[in-house]
């Protein structure tokens, strides 16, 4: 099948199967996203992050945890051999940043996987049922919203010991309430719609309606919000690392690397700057992608 006919098949107004209809819809969304150049830059950064994380062992030229000769190879400036220089333990900073992408990606993915479903479930349930269910769930949401992330992370660290896993849990627990709020607001407008009344008249149960009819309509705005929050999540994780509450040495977490380099920022600027640039680029990438997704997925936009 040539490229032209594949495109026609995808854009057909007479899809022949469920799969063709779904793929066609996805292709239309993708075409719209592709037209947005900044979003494609953001997507490129995110894909690059994933590729680097996946092939970190192949890309990194040195061991990220064990440095070279402590007498001769400490705090070397960027050179052809060490692209981003070396730190105070004589470790290659480029290799550490490459391996650090795994930690960053893990934080982002786990927070998204934990927080998004919780937020969606709580928000759509509260919005759909209303009344007492709504009041109880939204007050619980308010309670979680009142926890400052860093303080909760401190509590977790005190209870479970410091580490990146506990930081992830703390971030996830404090980041779902905005999604619940958003999903609830969307649900309140959706539940009045005739198509919800129609499926109720077909005898569908609440679970089927919420999962099959309300969630798909809330999902796009929540996805956009999560993508835009990714930058904040990365920064929070880096901030926890900087405070020594997140990733523990010698893990190559970007925030912790900045904290280590802070001591000799004046004389050996590259030690703190390189991971800082990495955090900056990845955060920007997620923000650009989120902006582009909002333009494409927002159900209120023209379609």
């Amino acid at each position: 099948m040539s490229a032209g006919t594949t495109r026609e098949w995808l854009l057909s107004d007479h899809p022949e199967s469920r799969r063709q209809a779904r793929l066609g819809q996805a292709y239309r969304t993708w075409s719209q996203l592709r037209a947005n150049r900044l979003a494609m830059v953001g997507l490129g950064v995110v894909v690059l992050l994933m590729v680097v994380a996946l092939f970190a062992d192949l890309i990194a030229p040195f061991d990220p945890l064990r440095g070279g000769d402590l007498r001769t190879e400490r705090l070397l400036p960027p050179s052809f051999e060490h692209w981003m220089g070396t730190d105070d333990q004589a470790r290659d900073i480029f290799s550490r940043i490459v391996h650090g992408s795994r930690l960053t990606l893990m934080v982002v993915a786990l927070v998204a996987v934990i927080a998004t479903p919780i937020g969606l479930a709580v928000g759509t349930t509260a919005g759909y049922f209303g009344g007492w269910v709504d009041i109880v769930l939204m007050r619980i949401t308010d309670i979680f919203l009142a926890f400052p992330r860093l303080i909760l992370a401190l509590a977790f660290v005190a209870a479970l010991g410091p580490g990146i896993e506990n930081a992830i849990i703390a971030i996830a627990i404090t980041s779902w309430p905005p999604y619940a709020r958003l999903a609830r607001a969307e649900t309140l407008t959706i539940r009045q719609a005739d198509h919800i009344a129609a499926i109720r008249l077909q005898g569908a149960g609440s679970l089927r309606i919420i999962w099959g009819h309300v969630v798909p309509l809330c999902l796009s705005s929540v996805i956009v919000r999560v993508t835009l929050d990714m930058a904040g999540i990365i920064l929070t994780a880096a901030g926890l690392g900087f405070l020594g509450l997140g990733a523990q040495p010698p893990q190559p977490e970007w925030g912790a690397m900045i904290a280590a380099g802070r001591r000799f920022l004046i004389d050996f600027w590259w030690v703190a700057t390189m991971p800082g640039i990495a955090i900056f680029v990845v955060s920007l990438g997620f923000n650009l992608l989120g902006d582009g997704l909002r333009d494409v997925l927002d159900p209120k936009g023209t379609k």
Binding site: R18, H195, P216, L217, P299
Partner: peptide, 10 residues
């Protein structure tokens, strides 16, 4: 308004 915007006729 009475048809779900993300569901096919099927």
């Amino acid at each position: 308004a009475s048809l779900h915007p993300r569901h096919t006729v099927d």
